[in-house]
Every structure is written in structure tokens, then in C-alpha cells.
């Protein structure tokens, strides 16, 4: 690693989030008091505005929605051999008992591991920034890139329930209805995606020593 890393901030340079044009802060300043990209006119920010506060607020709200998402039923099955309501984890266990291990693992990863892992990772990342911790920066940056990649995959269970509810409408034999947990779970997915988008990975590096 070189001894002297120059940062955009130390040179008062801004890079456009959309078109990657690099411009000096003062040269880009316009009448509305904000710097704008000279090439594509987007508003420029040195760092994402209120990144830490937004990430915290969104991830905490997502955690709150995660409770009803797991407690409430995600699916109601009405069949000739009885009615049944199942939660997300209940559905996974049911698949496991039916010896559909592959399906059970897919649903468990998408519905439990991905959203939980994403929320805990975001909390960890935001906490490190709040505390001003300046270690393991490469690992933290990799973790964030990974979070952005897996973002939408927790929608899986909602789509499964939607498809089953649309297809399984055989009156007298079996019908499937979505449960209220779909709403809470959809909120978890959207909120965690927004939280990841609000997080600014550059904050991780702002606490580095000048010659780190």
C-alpha cells in the first residue's frame, strides 16, 4: 500500500454519482447553493446526505417489521383435510418434514438468512462508523458490496405465496390465501434495500490516518 493516498475530499473534488464526472466543489456550485454536475446536471454530494442517520432509522424500522413478519401467518391453506395457517419458519419446517430438503434450504436462505444477515451486517457497519473504528476496512467494503448484491432475493417467499394463491383456487378441494405477514415481510425487504442504498461506504475510510 502506498504511503500517500490522496482523497477527493482533501482536494475538494466531487464525483458525479450518475455519470462519474469529476469536478471541483466551487466550480460546480450553482445559484441554488448546491453543486451540480456540469455534464448531467445531477446534484453532487461529497458524501451521501445524512447517511448514518438514514441507515440507522431504516434498519431499525426494518427490524421492527421483521417481528410481525415472523409471528403472523404468511399463508392460509384451506383443504379437504383441514385448514392450516403457516408462518415463514413453519413453512420451512413443513418442507423439511416432507423431505424436500432442497426447497427448504432455498426458502430458509432467502427468507431468514438473507434478511437477518443483511440487517445485522448493516447495524455492524453503521456501528463501526458511529464509533469511528478504523480497522478491517477492506473487509467492511467487501461486506457492503455483497449486501447490495443479495438485496432483492428475500422477495422470494412473497412471490411464492403470490403464485400459490393465484394457482391454488380449486373450490371444494384446496384454496390458498396470502397472510398478513406478506405485508410486513415486503416492508422488511424494501426498508433493508433503502437502508443499504443510504449507507455510504466512503465513511468507512474517512477515519483512516492520513498515511494509513
Amino acid at each position: 500500500m502506498t504511503a500517500s493516498i490522496i482523497t477527493g475530499r482533501s482536494k475538494a473534488l466531487l464525483q458525479c454519482h450518475y455519470c462519474s464526472f469529476v469536478v471541483n466543489h466551487d466550480a460546480a456550485l450553482e445559484a441554488d447553493g448546491h453543486p451540480h454536475c456540469p455534464r448531467c446536471s445531477a446534484v453532487l454530494h461529497q458524501r451521501k446526505p445524512n447517511s448514518q442517520a438514514r441507515t440507522w432509522a431504516l434498519v431499525i424500522t426494518a427490524m421492527l417489521f421483521y417481528i410481525p413478519a415472523n409471528v403472523l401467518p404468511i399463508m392460509h391453506t384451506h383443504a379437504i383435510n383441514g385448514n392450516q395457517s403457516s408462518t415463514i419458519v413453519g413453512g420451512v419446517l413443513h418442507l423439511w418434514h416432507l423431505e424436500s430438503y432442497d426447497l427448504a434450504i432455498i426458502v430458509f436462505v432467502a427468507s431468514v438468512i438473507v434478511p437477518l444477515g443483511k440487517m445485522l451486517s448493516l447495524i455492524l457497519l453503521a456501528l463501526f462508523n458511529t464509533l469511528g473504528y478504523a480497522g478491517k476496512q477492506q473487509a467492511r467494503t467487501r461486506l457492503y458490496n455483497f449486501l447490495e448484491l443479495i438485496g432483492p432475493w428475500s422477495m422470494l417467499d412473497i412471490f411464492v405465496v403470490a403464485l400459490l394463491a393465484a394457482i391454488v383456487q380449486f373450490r371444494g378441494l384446496a384454496t390458498i390465501q396470502p397472510g398478513l405477514a406478506t405485508v410486513a415481510f415486503a416492508m422488511v425487504v424494501v426498508l433493508t434495500m433503502l437502508a443499504a442504498k443510504s449507507y455510504d461506504p466512503r465513511l468507512t475510510w474517512d477515519h483512516s490516518k492520513p498515511n494509513d
Binding site: 482523497t7 477527493g8 475530499r9 464525483q15 471541483n24 466551487d26 466550480a27 460546480a28 467494503t141 466512503r202
Partner: peptide, 25 residues
Amino acid sequence: MPSAPSSQPARPGWILCHHCDAAYA
């Protein structure tokens, strides 16, 4: 850290890292 005021025009040769804000030619 406040950005250093500068009246110089933009340096077209810069590129910044989107992930950590390091600046390079």
C-alpha cells in the same frame, strides 16, 4: 473536515474511487 476552498477550475484528469474516495490521475 471542511473542504479546502479553491478557486481553481476542475482538474479533468482526476478519477475518484466510488467505494473509498481515493483520488487518482
